[in-house]
């Protein structure tokens, strides 16, 4: 069935008139000095959907955001727009790459990442939250800060002492519910491709997925039952049943 870019953009994102496919439809609003939205790639940086460095399918993107999808609120912790905070230009393009990896992985389960809502916690207000010590500090961060609207808050920090990412399973839709972690927290100091898998993994938790016993799955290997999901470059599979589970989360529309 034919898919109209303008039709999907209008119905799903409220875009009318002239708009940019990259910044308005995909939500990739940053470019590095070379004009790349994904920054400087390593040889191992391949998008899962195409197995090429930067090639992405517009048709698949339109299909997924026109189906059951959610908005992602990307919160850059300790960020100033002129990059005088902790977050660098290289990191924001890395986050865009990570989102595309996440989109490619979630497409396997017919789940779309529809709108990217870019937010920041200014340096003057970020306290010590750029470097998270452990799960308790991750919770303190999500207690203190909320992104707008009904999207899933994804806090992007420089480091986490006791893991590479944290999330609840499932996460709440009421961001004022501070009795438990109310967003996914992940570090952006890793490499591009693995940061994307990490993002898909943590947001996957938020959307209701638990760990698996296969490192080949996005949700990682916890076959030793210690509660820690181990992922690597090969953690790329997402099953139809996992997609179905994610689509039941309250943040989906």
């Amino acid at each position: 069935m034919a898919v109209s870019v303008r039709d999907v953009a209008r119905r799903r994102l409220g875009l009318v008139g002239a708009f940019s496919v990259t910044s308005d439809l995909y939500g990739y609003i940053y470019r590095d000095a070379d004009g790349s939205v994904f920054g400087t790639l390593a040889s191992s940086d391949l998008l899962p959907g195409s197995n090429r460095p930067v090639t992405r399918s517009l048709l698949r993107h339109l299909q997924t955001i026109d189906g059951t999808a959610f908005d992602m609120v990307l919160i850059l912790v300790d960020h100033e727009d002129d990059y005088t905070g902790s977050v660098t230009l290289d990191q924001v393009t890395k986050v865009q790459y990570a989102v595309q990896v996440t989109r490619d992985l979630y497409a396997q389960g017919s789940v779309g990442v529809r709108r990217l809502v870019w937010q920041r916690i200014p340096q003057a207000s970020a306290g010590g939250f750029a470097a998270i010590a452990d799960r308790a500090e991750a919770k303190s961060l999500s207690d203190d800060w909320n992104g707008p609207g009904g999207g899933v808050d994804v806090f992007l920090v420089q480091s986490i002492g006791d893991a590479d990412g944290w999330s609840n399973t499932p996460g709440p839709c009421d961001k004022n519910d501070t009795t438990d972690l109310s967003g996914a927290v992940l570090k952006v100091s890793g490499q591009r491709h693995i940061t994307g898998i990490l993002m898909a993994h943590e947001v996957g938790h938020y959307l209701g997925l638990g760990h698996t016993t296969s490192v080949a799955n996005v949700m990682g290997d916890d076959s030793d039952g210690d509660g820690i999901g181990r992922i690597d470059d090969t953690s790329l599979a997402l099953s139809a049943s996992e997609g179905a589970m994610m689509r039941t989360h309250c943040s989906m529309s």
Partner: peptide, 18 residues
């Protein structure tokens, strides 16, 4: 006693890419 959902955290700010 606690009030789940009763704590309004601080609102993050929109970015302004440069």
């Amino acid at each position: 006693t606690t009030v789940a959902g009763g704590a309004s955290g601080r609102q993050s700010s929109p970015v302004n890419p440069q």
